[in-house]
Design a protein around this nucleic acid. Structure first.
Lengths: 140, 140
DNA sequence: AAGATTATATCTTATATAACGATATAAAAC
DNA sequence: GTTTTATATCGTTATATAAGATATAATCTT
């Protein structure tokens, strides 16, 4: 019996626990998830946020308002349809998101530095493969 | 130039974004982080929570109280030193934590099912290696 | 052009969370 | 028997979360 989803998840959560950033900012879960959606999807507006999280449009609007007040997001109006808002992360917002979802850059650098070129190649192709197949399966 | 920490983080966050569970529970960020600490470390008490997150002991105590009220945690007293509390996740708490930090089991199963045994082996050894080296670097 | 629809914003209200200082308790150490 | 350690509780303050009701402003329909 080879790799199953349980074992892979154990690796996954262990690695995150070991390498995550020390969380400084007091950012809530919702805020991070909204920023993550905006970073990973093309054009995201208020309605998309509401739909994705199953909350009402006014709640989504207030979330976005608060996130903008913190300086993590900016609003742009859609040129083609001025009713629509297009949300984008500020550079500061990108940093905050990174510190809350990525692996700690410095620690990761150290880990990679301690590897041979072959090992790094091995890891790269594994992650690349897992991402590719994930895209195939989650064709949303 | 091979794999650097930026590229690996791109893979990492993409995979998480694609494969994460649809977040149902309204759990806050702090709650998840505290549960994660309790799951991954040996014996965790109130003081450990306070120290790890840089909050006061009373705040930590209240956090834990609320988490227990939700049914995610249980408190046990240390037999050797009855002042000390030893925190443990309930099965429900484990499920909630899983849904908020792991990759979605069903989606992951599908992804793995679409792979050859060789590919799975490749991914397993890559994750195993990354975890091992992370433990070495983060000798906390 | 008038009315309907769509996308977002604001106001109000209710509840939950986060954090801390001050204080209390109870076990263990000295 | 006092001090220290580990945790708990109370009171308070600030902020976050969520939604209903309502408003605005652009676009679509006829």
């Amino acid at each position: 019996m080879g790799l199953d989803e349980k074992l892979l998840n154990e690796y996954w959560t262990d690695i995150y626990f070991l390498l995550h950033y020390p969380h400084k900012e007091k950012v809530t879960h919702q805020v991070i998830r909204i920023m993550q959606l905006i970073e990973k999807k093309e054009t995201v507006g208020i309605g998309d946020v509401a739909e994705y999280f199953g909350i009402s449009h006014n709640t989504a609007s207030e979330h976005v308002k608060r996130i903008i007040e913190k300086g993590f997001l900016v609003k742009n109006r859609d040129k083609a349809d001025e009713r629509k808002v297009i949300l984008a992360l500020t550079t500061f917002g990108q940093k905050v998101l990174q510190r809350n979802t990525s692996l700690d850059g410095e620690k990761l650098k150290q880990v990679l530095a301690g590897m041979t070129e072959e090992e790094r190649q091995h890891i790269e192709s594994a992650f690349q493969l897992l991402r590719e197949r994930s895209i195939d399966v989650c064709s949303v």
